[in-house]
Design a protein around this nucleic acid. Structure first.
Length: 140
DNA sequence: GCCAACGTTGGC
DNA sequence: GCCAACGTTGGC
């Protein structure tokens, strides 16, 4: 299994919105960035991801699971863009903030830190385990 | 609200 | 194909 991170502005799509969708999942649509699209094309059903709130929160707030591989983005008419579907799995007992991540030397090479504008990004197994532990999840 | 970083667009 | 201009994102 591989790990990922999905970034969203809470004002446009928040963790609560994602939870409200339930197990049916939800298209991660609206991505108009080639790098992010290519990352989504690598995802497989069952992969896990962090749900990150940008802007006001700047924190990892929950765990999501990929429920559908990359497919055409239904909000796109050009046929260029793709997205996966994800569902909420569990909130982090304690959100892990960007400041904490930056303060953790082992996490310094995360795209979240050095490629801040990439909205969908891979997460190493080490970083995954570390952030889960920081968030109060012993068994991710 | 500002600004830095970065991606995209369009003129040449 | 280069590069300047512009738009967008996201941290502060």
């Amino acid at each position: 299994m591989r790990y990922w991170l999905f970034k969203s502005e809470p004002s446009s799509w928040s963790w609560d919105d994602q939870v409200a969708k339930g197990d049916g999942g939800q298209e991660w649509d609206g991505v108009r960035n080639y790098q992010a699209r290519n990352v989504m094309r690598e995802m497989a059903v069952g992969d896990r991801g962090f749900f990150y709130h940008s802007q006001s929160d700047k924190a990892v707030v929950g765990i999501v699971e990929v429920t559908a591989e990359a497919h055409p983005d239904s909000t796109d008419d050009s046929g260029k863009w793709a997205c996966v579907d994800i569902k909420a799995v569990a909130p982090l007992p304690r959100p892990v903030t960007l400041a904490e991540i930056k303060d953790t030397p082992d996490l310094a090479d995360m795209a979240l830190v050095n490629n801040t504008r990439l909205s969908v990004q891979p997460v190493s197994p080490e970083a995954w385990a570390r952030i889960c532990a920081m968030g109060g999840l012993d068994d991710p």
